[in-house]
Computed example of a mutant assay.
Amino acid sequence: MACKHGLALVMAAGASRRFGHEDKRMAKVGGMSLLARSWRNAAAGFGQALLAAKPGDDLGLLDLDNITPESVYYCQQPQLGLGSNIAQAVDYIHQHFAADSFDFLAVVLADMPLIKVATLETLAAAGAVDKIVRPSWQGRPGHPVLFGRQFWPQLRQLQGDQGGVGVLQANPQSVQEIALEDAAVCWDIDTPEALQQAEKQVAKNS
Rank of each mutant, 00 (worst) to 15 (best):
C3A: 15
L9W: 10
V10C: 07
M11Q: 13
M11G: 04
R17Q: 14
R17D: 15
E22S: 12
D23V: 10
D23Y: 11
D23R: 08
K24C: 09
R25C: 01
M26G: 12
A27L: 06
V29S: 09
G30V: 11
G30E: 08
G31H: 12
G31T: 11
S33N: 07
S33F: 12
L35K: 08
R37I: 04
W39D: 03
N41S: 15
A49Q: 12
L50A: 09
L50K: 06
A52I: 02
A53E: 02
K54W: 12
G56S: 06
G56M: 09
D58M: 05
D58P: 14
L61S: 08
L64R: 01
N66P: 00
I67F: 12
E70L: 14
S71W: 01
Y73G: 05
Q76G: 14
Q76V: 07
L80T: 03
L82E: 07
S84T: 14
I86F: 11
A87H: 07
A87Q: 03
Q88D: 11
Q88C: 04
A89Q: 07
H94F: 07
Q95K: 15
Q95V: 05
Q95I: 08
H96T: 13
A98W: 01
A99D: 01
F102C: 09
D103K: 07
P113H: 10
I115S: 00
K116I: 01
E121G: 00
E121F: 04
E121K: 13
A125F: 03
I132L: 06
I132K: 04
R134T: 10
R134Y: 03
P135L: 04
P135Y: 08
P135N: 05
W137Y: 15
G139M: 10
R140D: 15
P141N: 12
G142D: 11
V145Y: 00
V145C: 12
R149T: 05
Q154I: 08
L155I: 07
L158E: 06
G160D: 13
G163S: 07
V165K: 08
G166I: 09
G166W: 00
G166P: 04
L168H: 01
L168A: 03
Q169T: 10
P172W: 10
S174P: 02
S174A: 15
V175N: 02
Q176G: 02
I178G: 02
L180V: 08
C186K: 00
W187T: 11
W187H: 10
D188K: 05
D190G: 06
D190V: 05
P192K: 09
E193N: 13
A194W: 12
L195Q: 09
Q196M: 11
Q196Y: 01
Q197D: 15
E199K: 05
E199Y: 00
Q201I: 10
N205A: 13
